[in-house]
Simulated assay, not measured.
Amino acid sequence: MVERVTATDSALALIEKLKDRHGPLMFHQSGGCCDGSSPMCYADGELKTGRSDVKLGEIGGTPFYIAKDQYEYWKHTQLIIDVVNGRGGMFSLEGPEGKRFLTRSRVFSDEERAALQKQE
């Protein structure tokens, strides 16, 4: 099964730390408003999702969403969530840790695109 979103080991470790502190979490790929285009981490249910959001999958047992219009731009890529030092989105839970989540991506191969079409 091809995953639309994955996470590095560093990101998974930070997710576990945040879960210990805040309980269940959720992610939403920001569309570039206040905090730029970055993955935002919230306590589960803190951000209301709706019909205009697509659930890409889960990272570290945590649901990951993206807005439909942004999904249309990125649907040919796998999102790889990483973590780097520095301050990120002011609304995202990792901010006080001195770290920020970062989205990297890679283009799906032809075989992966075909497999994704079968999965849908």
Rank of each mutant, 00 (worst) to 15 (best):
W74A: 12
N85E: 15
E97N: 05
A115E: 15
T62K: 01
N85M: 03
H76A: 15
G32D: 12
E112D: 10
P24R: 08
D9E: 15
E120A: 13
N85C: 00
V84R: 15
Q78N: 12
R21M: 07
Y65N: 05
K17F: 00
L56E: 06
G95E: 14
D44N: 09
R106W: 04
K55N: 09
P63Q: 08
G31W: 11
K19L: 11
H28D: 12
L79F: 06
E94N: 06
H28Y: 06
G31F: 11
V54W: 13
G60N: 04
Q117V: 12
L12Y: 08
Y73C: 10
S30M: 04
G23Q: 04
E58W: 05
M40V: 14
L93I: 02
G88P: 02
D82E: 13
T77P: 00
A7N: 08
P96F: 12
R51Y: 07
A114D: 15
R21I: 01
V5G: 05
A115T: 08
T49I: 12
I80C: 05
G86W: 11
G50L: 09
L14C: 06
K99M: 14
D44F: 13
S37T: 09
A43N: 05
S37W: 10
L56A: 07
L79Y: 10
A7G: 10
R106E: 15
Y73T: 06
E72Y: 06
N85A: 11
F108C: 02
G36A: 09
L14D: 05
E58M: 10
E111T: 08
L79E: 14
S52W: 03
Q117D: 14
V84N: 12
E46W: 02
T77W: 06
D82G: 03
R87K: 07
V84D: 14
T49N: 09
L79W: 13
P96V: 07
M90H: 13
F101M: 11
A13W: 01
D110M: 03
G98Q: 04
L12T: 02
E97S: 09
K55E: 13
D53P: 03
G86C: 06
K68H: 08
G36N: 12
I59H: 02
M1H: 03
I66M: 14
L14Q: 14
R87F: 13
V54A: 03
C33K: 14
F108L: 10
L116K: 07
D69I: 03
L116G: 06
L56H: 10
L47P: 00
Q70G: 02
L93N: 12
L116P: 00
K99S: 04
G36I: 02
I66W: 01
V2I: 14
E97V: 02
T77N: 07
K17W: 00
P96M: 08
R51F: 11
T77K: 05
R51V: 11
I15A: 07
S10C: 00
D69P: 00
E72A: 15
D20C: 01
K68C: 00
D9L: 04
E3A: 10
E16M: 05
R4I: 00
Q119L: 10
I59Q: 02
Q117H: 04
A114L: 10
E16F: 00
G61A: 04
T62L: 03
R100T: 09
H76P: 01
N85G: 11
K48D: 11
